[in-house]
């Protein structure tokens, strides 16, 4: 079995491109949902040591929103969308047209749906480019300490490597800015299949 380190430039470029297309699709879906113009920056794709992950999000005790979905069929694994509290509030203001102080049932459901759209858009572009059939589960959401939420993907990755693939997308609508962080966690066999499907292995 090939080692699962993402140190190959070509692999990173390909994953970056998928990140680009996936984020583009996600933003298009959001814009049509909002009937508003949404701007998006070029996503940052990074390969990071899982110990550094909470630091990126402002520390282990920072409260974040995590939306988690699992993948099956040709690719097995998980995908997680993480928002800091400010981004989650901005996103809800865009969607619901009102100031959000506390996360009630409607806001939680709206956030899950956005997580669902973002993750599915990403998975769709991955599926199209690899020719692999990938289905996505319904989303599960948690609002808690970054360390605790990220322990879930970190553990998944702990089985195969000490690194994670991390995609950061910033999008804006008017004065609202939202920074979304996406973690893709295929299992080791699926990862090899994906790279093979993409023609880089």
């Amino acid at each position: 079995m090939a080692s699962c380190k993402f140190n190959d430039d070509i692999i990173i470029d390909v994953l970056k491109e998928i990140g680009n297309i996936g984020s583009g699709n996600a933003v298009t879906a959001l814009a049509s949902m909002l009937s508003k113009k949404v701007k998006m920056s070029v996503p940052k794709v990074r390969i990071i040591d899982f110990k550094q992950v909470p630091t990126i999000l402002g520390g282990e005790e920072e409260i974040v929103v995590g939306i988690y979905l699992y993948l099956n069929e040709d690719v097995e694994g998980n995908i997680m969308f993480v928002l800091d509290i400010k981004s989650a509030q901005n996103l809800l203001e865009m969607l619901l047209n009102k100031k959000i102080k506390e996360f009630d049932e409607i806001s939680i459901s709206a956030l899950s749906e956005v997580g669902n759209i973002v993750a599915s858009s990403y998975v769709n572009s991955l599926s199209t480019l690899t020719g692999l059939k990938i289905s996505v589960s319904i989303p599960s959401i948690a609002i808690d300490m970054a360390g605790a939420i990220l322990s879930v993907p970190a553990i998944q990755f702990g089985f195969i490597a000490d690194q994670a693939l991390f995609i950061e997308t910033v999008f804006e609508e008017g004065a609202h800015s939202v920074k979304g962080n996406l973690f893709l966690l295929p299992d080791i066999y699926s990862f090899k299949k994906m790279l093979y499907g993409l023609g880089v292995l």
Binding site: K51, E61, M145, S151, V152, G158
Partner: peptide, 23 residues
């Protein structure tokens, strides 16, 4: 103490780990 980490100390001092989830 970080994730996938461990430490031992002799008093005085406090050992802490932040944001334990499924770990």
């Amino acid at each position: 103490v970080r994730m996938a980490d461990l430490k031992a100390i002799k008093a005085p001092g406090i050992l802490t780990t932040l944001g334990l989830g499924s770990c």
